[in-house]
Design a protein around this nucleic acid. Structure first.
Length: 572
RNA sequence: CGGGGCGUGGCUCAGCCUGGCUAGAGCGCUCGGUUCGGGACCGAGAGGUCGUGGGUUCAAAUCCCACCGCCCCGACCA
């Protein structure tokens, strides 16, 4: 394509409202423009790159499944059937048609896919199925952010598997795992596959595909030695042992005026926080509206942080919230800051596993301005052990004891073993080989197209601009004559342009009447992997220069060989 | 939703605190000329409801109130 006829609005300066590198560069390079918070237009370059990403996804998904295209506009009834009309709440864009009927824009498509399956699939012989689509999703996020990182409208490849049994689901899940690896490999991403928290979706297993980046919003825990990898929400680790001073004395209450926090208590007692026991109070709403809320006391080592996802899991997925000060006073007889496990009644006590075997700890006395020392779990009080703490960098790996690393990461894909929740609630049934009616088991799987672009931009850029992997760059090569007023240069450029196109390379021919510096800066900014530069001197000697964007290496080649040299780079 | 910031030509910003000449700069854009291997230079131009509405005032980009939009931190995130 001839640059002079294209719309590639590059910017010299960073847009004022961007902070993430990918956001700044995608706007500066003319890939995207913002329309509203979390809503972006793809311009020419952005669309070319998006289409390449989508094509890679499509090719790999076609190896394992069938492409559909579902509506984005859904009737409310479908979502009310599964209870997710309420569950998604304000995250869902809801609207009414002219007849006053409730509609919404799809946040995901389990309901629509399951609706198709239940009305068409009757027999186990029709299973398994893997259906996918590449389509727009709408989520009214409370806080869109970082350009294309978190959008309110975005393109997702989502797929759904239907299998007769768990073994079948394992196969479908595995196929997706492998397809996702091929997709992200082909897109040039470096990523980790991590065990993920299944969240309110339920389900037995889920994995996330994570690109480590400081711009990421998630945290993952990885072990460089045994390859353990998990989302921080889910990650487990060992703990370095703590030397307790053996104490055979009985618990002893002592005054601690105005000492509420762990830091204050450590300073007051002169003990390290790992000798203290942190008491956090939560309540579970009763299943029965007339019932009493259940008070929960979570106990952690003073220097540890509670992991809310793990607490939720320990409570069996029940809805919970931090206890209010009044509720704490009623249940413990003391203000927050002075509560503890001793002598409490009707309180469910959860101890983090790192407290197992510890002795002689200090914790709240359930009496204002007092704590209690010489407390030993299991001797002085009892409770259930659960993994509650948030892993931090340096914790010993639960598998190999080597130190773990916590990194921020961008979630580019997520695969879920869904189970039978949707099939069950929506009445999907098939007959098995014995003629019995059974409920198929489902999986759901997602890839965020913009996330791939964002992650690539975060991963591959420098101070001059983007340097996208070849597979997703908008062009293969830019062709840059430094001055088109010189007939020999123009002739050589036009000739090369034809040859490159003939060789099926995607070439961006910079035939603009711009000075060389402008052309070089723009070419660097938009991140095309190679540039062929035609300069007066070199062309007079029959040479052109091939410049590799990612390494900044330059090499002179003879003009007749330029195309084949470049082709070999792409093929080899 | 809580906290913070911002809103002035296409872009990046100054001006606002302390109200008052015709609202400025750089970049970009148009025309003419020179220039041409890393965002050139000279000359001449075009382009602005100062986010919106209301209020105070002789007078509002500037002060006050309300609203809207965008960004950041937090909460949230199948």
């Amino acid at each position: 394509m001839r640059w002079s006829q294209l719309f590639i609005p590059t910017l010299r300066e960073d847009p004022a409202d961007a902070t993430a590198a990918s956001h700044k560069l995608l706007v500066r390079a003319g890939y995207v423009r913002q329309l509203a918070a979390g809503v972006y237009s793809y311009l020419y370059l952005g669309q070319r790159t998006a289409l390449k990403i989508i094509q890679i996804i499509r090719e790999e998904m076609d190896r394992i499944g069938q492409e559909f295209y579902l509506p984005a506009l859904h009737p409310a009834e479908l979502w009310q059937e599964t209870g997710r009309w309420e569950q998604f709440g304000e995250t869902m864009f809801k609207l009414k048609d002219r007849g006053g009927r409730d509609l919404c824009l799809g946040v995901t498509h389990e309901e629509v896919m399951t609706d198709i399956a239940r009305s068409e699939i009757r027999s186990y012989r029709q299973l398994p199925q893997i259906w996918y689509q590449i389509q727009v999703k709408f989520r009214d996020e409370p806080r869109p952010k970082s350009g294309l990182m978190r959008l309110r409208q975005f393109i997702m490849k989502d797929s759904y598997s239907f299998d007769l049994d768990e073994a079948g689901l394992d196969v479908s899940y595995r196929k997706h795992h492998d397809a996702y690896c091929r997709i992200f490999d082909r897109c040039g991403l470096r990523y980790n596959v991590v065990e993920a928290h299944s969240g309110a979706m339920g389900g037995a297993m889920s994995h996330e595909f994570m690109v480590v980046s400081p711009a990421g919003e998630d945290f993952i825990v990885t072990c460089a030695y045994c390859l353990y990898a998990a989302n921080l929400e889910k990650a487990r680790a060992g703990v370095a042992p703590v030397e307790d001073v053996p104490g055979d004395r009985k618990p002893e209450v002592f005054p601690t005026p105005n000492v509420r926090t762990i830091d204050e208590l450590a300073a007051f007692t002169g003990l390290k926080p790992d000798r203290l026991m942190k008491s956090l109070a939560y309540v579970i709403a009763p299943a029965d509206p007339k019932g009493q809320p259940q008070m929960v006391l979570a106990l952690l080592r003073g220097d540890h942080q509670l992991n809310e996802a793990k607490l939720g899991e320990a409570l069996g997925g029940a809805a919970w919230r931090p206890a209010l000060a009044g509720e704490i006073r009623d249940a413990f007889g003391a203000e927050p800051g002075f509560i503890g496990p001793l002598g409490v009644r009707n309180v469910r006590i959860l101890l983090d596993t790192s407290l197992k075997g510890r002795t002689n700890l200090v914790t709240g006395a359930n009496r204002n301005d007092h704590h209690v020392r010489h407390v030993t779990p299991e001797e002085d009080f009892t409770g259930e052990y659960a993994d509650l703490r948030t892993v931090v960098s340096g914790d010993p790996c639960g598998q190999c004891r080597r130190p773990l690393t916590v990194s921020s990461a961008i979630e580019v894909g997520h695969i879920f073993k869904l189970g039978r929740r949707y099939a069950e609630s929506m009445g999907l049934r098939v007959l098995d080989a014995q003629g019995r009616e059974v409920i198929p088991i489902m999986g759901s799987y997602g890839i965020g197209v913009e996330r791939i672009l964002t992650a690539a931009a975060e991963l591959y850029h420098d101070e001059d601009g983007l340097r996208l992997p070849r597979a997703i760059a908008p062009f293969d090569v830019t062709l840059t004559p430094v001055n088109l007023d010189e007939p020999p240069l123009r002739a050589a450029a036009e000739q090369l342009y034809r040859e490159l196109e003939h060789a099926r390379l995607q070439v961006l021919y910079d035939d603009r009447d711009e000075r060389p510096g402008v052309k070089f800066k723009d070419a660097d900014l938009i991140g095309v992997p190679y540039r062929i530069t035609l300069g007066t001197q070199k062309v007079a000697q029959g040479l052109v220069e091939i410049f590799e964007r990612s390494t900044r290496r330059k090499a002179d080649v003879r003009i007749p060989e330029a195309v084949s040299v470049l082709r070999s780079r792409y093929c080899g």
